[in-house]
Design a protein around this nucleic acid. Structure first.
Lengths: 160, 160
DNA sequence: TTAATTACTTTGAACTTCAAAGTATTCTGA
DNA sequence: TCAGAATACTTTGAAGTTCAAAGTAATTAA
């Protein structure tokens, strides 16, 4: 039982680093290598479809609006994002992807899909079902834990 | 089938961000809040036990030695890490955790264990088995893909 | 012993992020 | 109505993270 925990922990740590590494490596080899990972992350948050205000996207990314402003500056300069003042409320800035931004989004989405494809291909039907169910359960659980911000019990004091 | 991929992708993305968020939040609430996430990462790479040269740790972290030097500077200043010239080969710098570094390491390890503990506690036997099996498979698969650095073509392989 | 190599540090530049201060616009209450 | 509050965003200054390239000191090789 404790052994299982160790394995799970190890797997998560390793997988985490692997995915981050691969994602970056693939980005820097692909047709959108002028993007950084964090810029790509912003593009993902903007997404296909409707334009959205700065504050909405900043919240989605969990960064301040000031931080997002700077990111959007460079993405506009690089041609991935359009920025326009709202017509109704002129304080608002409406952000959307340009065609080039769209293309980058789709390209990255394809990478994700292929990565998931790999994953699914090594699982049988029953396994993938359980995996989805399990991840859903964990996500929901963390969501609740996370909502209370505290995630307490942990900061009591030194072990060792 | 394609729907399942979408769900799995979404779950993985969400879980990813959740774990990163929680980890950071917990760090900033705990007794080692003077550490940044990346400093904690360095501490993890140094680990308990023997001292190691800079180059070894840099490789483990996949950063340049110059980058590591800067990180170690602040960790030494903060008292988490000891840095000593090698006696045998004086070019070498031997890095190890101080007692305080040890304590921070263990504290973080405890957090990990508790997070895994939470996770296991909401899964039944079959679920945790499949989860471990799946993660192991995925990790191994990525390891091979990753080893060839290229991550090219995507999709001329079928394991299992 | 000079030249090359190795292990690390320093430097300069780019990027990421935040908090706080600043600007423009809209809303609200007396 | 209109002055002050609130909102949406941008700018600024500072701290971190990271790399490549240049620099230093020690070791190894020819």
């Amino acid at each position: 039982m404790d052994h299982k925990k160790e394995i799970l922990n190890h797997m998560l740590v390793v997988l985490f680093n692997q995915i981050l590494s691969i994602e970056e490596k693939v980005l820097k080899q692909g047709p959108y290598k002028d993007l950084t990972m964090s810029e790509l992350h912003v593009i993902e948050a903007i997404g296909i479809g409707d334009k959205h205000p700065m504050s909405y996207i900043a919240q989605k990314l969990d960064v301040t609006v000031g931080t997002l402003t700077i990111a959007i500056n460079t993405l506009v300069r690089k041609g991935y994002v359009s920025r326009n003042r709202g017509t109704e409320d002129k304080r608002v800035v409406e952000i959307a992807l340009t065609d080039k931004g769209h293309a980058a989004f789709e390209h990255h989405k394809t990478f994700h899909e292929e990565m998931i494809g790999y994953t699914m291909s090594i699982l049988d039907e029953a396994e993938s079902d359980v995996l989805i169910k399990t991840l859903t359960k964990i996500t929901k659980y963390f969501d609740e834990k996370y909502a209370q911000t505290k995630f307490e019990k942990i900061g009591d004091e030194d072990e060792n």
